[in-house]
Structure formats: C-alpha cells, structure tokens
Amino acid sequence: MAASLMLRSMNNIITGILSLIKGLIITFNNNFTSATTLQYPDEKKAMTERFRGLIDLYPEKCVACYQCVKACPTACLAMTHKQTDEKKKITNTFTYNIELCCFCGLCQQVCPTGAIYMNKIYEITTYERNKLYINLLNPEKYDEWPHTSPK
C-alpha cells in the first residue's frame, strides 16, 4: 500500500519533470527560428491584390449612377452630378469621409463601370483632422500618404 503510494508519487514527479522539459524544448527550438516580425518602418509589408484600402476614383469612368452612395452602410460618400452637352451625366463633386468609412468594399462591388475602387494604402494617419475629408476628383489627393504596392 505504502509502496504503491510511493510508486505513484514517483511516477507523478517524473511525468511532471518530463512535461516541464518538453515545454523547454519547444521554446528552445523556437529560439533559433527566424523572427516573424518586420522592422517597421524600414521594412513594410505589401498588402494583397484584393486589399481594401482607401476609396479611389477614375473620374472619366463614373456615370453618376449614385449606386455607391446608396450602397454605403455608413454614408461616407456624397456626390452631385451635372449634365454634359451630350446629355450624359458626370460627377460634379464627390467627397469621401475617411472617418466614417468602414472599408467594407460594397461600393466597389456595386459600381457598374468599375470607376470607384479601393487602392492599397493602409497607413492611414494624419496630423490634422481636415485631411480625412477627401475630394475624390482631385488627382493628388493621396500624394502625401505612403504607398506600398502589392507584389
């Protein structure tokens, strides 16, 4: 009875110490693998092709159908249109509020001509709040922000 008790406790001790050693082996092995982190901002990760960054526009393709404005769940797009001489509709003003955008991609999906799309900018920080209200018709709107192009 006492012998079996001693045997059981010895067994417990040995399994206990073995479990500790197993854990140590795992961390030791991981010690010699290469780091999984990147030295940002020296090394930047490029996002994928389908990445949903900020909203961007090809103004020449837009037919002012207002589908993107209606599809947006947070109402971050606002547009007005005007008529050209050939009775075609083009955009007059097209504003985009980055504060409200939730990067869902519904506008990009619903656009019939592919005019509105999402670019690959993911470092969306500014020092001033008014820089977050973008005029999509301005071709230099994203010049200040770092672009990391996908592979």
Partner: peptide, 13 residues
C-alpha cells in the same frame, strides 16, 4: 533579447 528570440521576434534593435 532572449525573451524576444524565444517569442520569435527581435527585441530592441
């Protein structure tokens, strides 16, 4: 540094 390498990162650089 040791803790960083065990956690597969780099530590102070």
């Amino acid at each position: 540094k040791v803790s960083a390498h065990i956690q597969t990162r780099l530590g102070p650089m």
